[in-house]
Amino acid sequence: MPPRPTAAPSPRTRLRRVPEKAAYDRATIEAILDAMPVAHVGYVMDGAPVVIPTLQWREGDHIYWHGSSASRSLKAGKGAQVCVTVTLVDAMVMARSGFEHSVNHRSVMIFGEARAITDLSEKRRHLQAMFDRMFPGRWETLRPITDKELTATGILSLPISEASAKIGAHAPGGSDAEEDRSFPVWSGLLPISLATGAPIPAPDLPAGVTLPEGLRRWRFGEIAE
């Protein structure tokens, strides 16, 4: 059976401070991963921690990310322990004291040993899966990827078996201490959302090439099923 996170967190994923913000169930973890493609991957390179931003996508019980085959970080990650984090920021929490200011957010941390995908056909399949998740239908319209390009692309995979979510969801005024509620300063939430701007076409598009409807409706982090 593929690895799956359990209800009991590991020593690395257990949230010790404010444990009520933790979630270990698979549905919560998957929802956050699917809503935010941007991830930060922590590696150890030359004895020092290095954190690299990248795009991640989920296929069932694993997440994947890619880069250049020559990348130092991807080389360091092969068969090594890594930590992948994904975060969505929902609002800035404005309290009546500086101490109680906070951020409403949803985040996931995944620990484990990264596996390198080396077979070219497997690479092609996973890259197509990435496009199918992020830009449904686009892969089939593109110039076919070459074996040279596949060789130049590195892909790492991590099972979602040691993972936890952390969710901060203060209501407006909910972070204020009781004794601060009469203090005359504005308290509440500053909501944050991601917006997709109007598409900008390449200046040399051949005549008759129009914007596909899927890209016209595309929104960051929205995953088509």
Score class of each variant (00 low, 15 high):
14 R>E: 14
15 L>V: 15
16 R>M: 12
16 R>A: 14
18 V>W: 12
18 V>Q: 13
19 P>I: 12
21 K>E: 13
21 K>Y: 14
23 A>L: 13
23 A>W: 07
23 A>F: 05
26 R>H: 14
26 R>K: 14
26 R>N: 13
30 E>H: 15
32 I>L: 07
33 L>I: 03
34 D>G: 06
35 A>N: 02
37 P>F: 06
37 P>S: 11
39 A>Y: 02
40 H>D: 05
40 H>Y: 08
40 H>N: 08
40 H>A: 13
42 G>W: 01
43 Y>P: 04
44 V>W: 06
45 M>Y: 02
46 D>N: 15
46 D>R: 11
46 D>S: 14
46 D>I: 05
48 A>F: 08
49 P>H: 10
51 V>Y: 03
52 I>T: 14
55 L>H: 07
55 L>V: 11
60 G>T: 12
60 G>W: 12
61 D>E: 15
62 H>D: 06
62 H>C: 07
63 I>P: 00
63 I>L: 06
64 Y>Q: 02
65 W>S: 02
65 W>R: 02
65 W>A: 02
67 G>Q: 04
68 S>L: 09
70 A>H: 11
72 R>L: 10
72 R>H: 14
74 L>G: 05
74 L>H: 06
74 L>C: 10
75 K>L: 13
75 K>Y: 05
75 K>F: 04
76 A>G: 12
77 G>A: 09
78 K>S: 13
78 K>D: 15
80 A>L: 04
80 A>N: 10
82 V>M: 02
83 C>D: 03
85 T>L: 06
88 L>W: 03
89 V>N: 04
90 D>Y: 02
91 A>H: 07
93 V>N: 02
95 A>D: 01
96 R>M: 02
96 R>T: 04
98 G>W: 06
98 G>C: 08
101 H>G: 04
102 S>M: 04
105 H>G: 07
106 R>I: 08
107 S>G: 08
108 V>F: 03
115 R>E: 15
120 L>H: 06
122 E>A: 15
123 K>Y: 01
127 L>T: 03
128 Q>I: 05
128 Q>F: 04
131 F>W: 07
134 M>C: 06
138 R>L: 15
139 W>Y: 07
141 T>Q: 15
143 R>F: 06
143 R>N: 13
